[in-house]
Amino acid sequence: MARCSQLRSDGVACGLPIEAGAPVQLCSSHLLAAHDWVARDVGVTDLLPGPCVACGGRVGIRYPSGWVCAVCEWRAGELVDVEIASELRIEVVYYLRYDDRIKIGTSATPRRRIAALPHDEVLAFERGGRGLEQRRHRQFADQRIPRTEWFEIDDTLLDHVSALRAGIEDPWDLYSRWLSTELALRG
């Protein structure tokens, strides 16, 4: 069995066994010391002590100086300026599924707007306002239920929603990231 040759403070080799498959010829104790040395600059990904106050994210990066949200990079422990946060408005085009149809609408306060609408699922968000919403209504005009913002589900509309959701499990996470970015730019 290979032994760690890292010198201790007294100048003698460590001599502890090296685990099979170790990436470098160091014992577990010295590998952990090397890891901690590197982690002080690059951080360690872990669960935050509590949800991020800016975006609600749960994953963070731990540095010796403290935690940073992995989603929005807000420093854990820093307070959100309530006055600025309450003024934040990001216009989005939202896609809701209700039964066998999809609503394409827009709002600067989607949580409030969507809470007032019948829906089974929030499918996606797209950053933009009325102009983008109207373009999407024209784009999917063949599926539109007359005189409404509701559309019959078909492959072209589902493909569009899938493209918007690529790599995003929960559309609200994306919206939270947009909000936290705006908040960071203002604060």
Score class of each variant (00 low, 15 high):
residue 7 L to I: 02
residue 183 L to E: 13
residue 163 A to E: 15
residue 93 V to L: 01
residue 28 S to C: 08
residue 40 R to Y: 04
residue 17 P to G: 04
residue 114 I to C: 12
residue 140 F to V: 01
residue 97 R to K: 09
residue 180 S to V: 01
residue 55 C to D: 04
residue 8 R to D: 13
residue 176 S to E: 14
residue 9 S to P: 02
residue 56 G to H: 09
residue 54 A to D: 06
residue 16 L to T: 06
residue 2 A to C: 07
residue 45 T to Q: 15
residue 88 L to W: 06
residue 68 V to H: 10
residue 58 R to P: 01
residue 134 Q to A: 04
residue 39 A to P: 05
residue 51 P to M: 03
residue 64 P to K: 03
residue 175 Y to N: 03
residue 29 S to A: 15
residue 143 Q to G: 13
residue 145 I to Y: 02
residue 102 I to D: 04
residue 117 L to F: 00
residue 57 G to Y: 00
residue 81 D to G: 05
residue 33 A to W: 05
residue 30 H to I: 08
residue 185 L to F: 06
residue 87 E to M: 12
residue 92 V to Y: 02
residue 15 G to E: 07
residue 53 V to I: 11
residue 139 Q to L: 02
residue 162 S to A: 13
residue 36 D to L: 13
residue 84 I to C: 12
residue 187 G to P: 02
residue 127 R to Q: 03
residue 168 I to D: 06
residue 38 V to A: 15
residue 103 K to T: 01
residue 89 R to F: 05
residue 101 R to A: 10
residue 58 R to Q: 15
residue 105 G to M: 05
residue 55 C to K: 04
residue 145 I to N: 08
residue 90 I to C: 12
residue 125 F to T: 01
residue 125 F to I: 03
residue 21 G to D: 09
residue 4 C to D: 14
residue 157 L to C: 08
residue 99 D to P: 02
residue 184 A to P: 03
residue 135 R to K: 12
residue 106 T to F: 13
residue 53 V to A: 15
residue 18 I to K: 08
residue 37 W to Y: 11
residue 53 V to T: 13
residue 81 D to Y: 05
residue 64 P to M: 07
residue 64 P to E: 10
residue 133 E to Q: 12
residue 7 L to Y: 03
residue 147 R to D: 15
residue 23 P to C: 01
residue 66 G to K: 00
residue 39 A to Y: 08
residue 145 I to M: 07
residue 53 V to E: 14
residue 52 C to T: 06
residue 22 A to L: 06
residue 185 L to G: 11
residue 154 D to C: 13
residue 3 R to I: 12
residue 143 Q to R: 12
residue 16 L to D: 13
residue 168 I to V: 14
residue 165 R to P: 00
residue 11 G to S: 05
residue 63 Y to T: 00
residue 92 V to N: 01
residue 180 S to Q: 06
residue 91 E to N: 05
residue 125 F to C: 04
residue 101 R to P: 02
residue 130 R to N: 10
residue 121 E to L: 11
residue 61 I to W: 01
residue 113 R to I: 05
residue 136 R to Y: 00
residue 140 F to S: 01
residue 121 E to S: 09
residue 64 P to R: 01
residue 58 R to D: 11
residue 57 G to Q: 03
residue 7 L to S: 06
residue 85 A to W: 08
residue 75 R to M: 12
residue 185 L to R: 15
residue 64 P to H: 07
residue 152 E to M: 10
residue 35 H to R: 14
residue 73 E to G: 08
residue 120 D to Q: 13
residue 157 L to K: 07
residue 124 A to W: 00
residue 106 T to S: 08
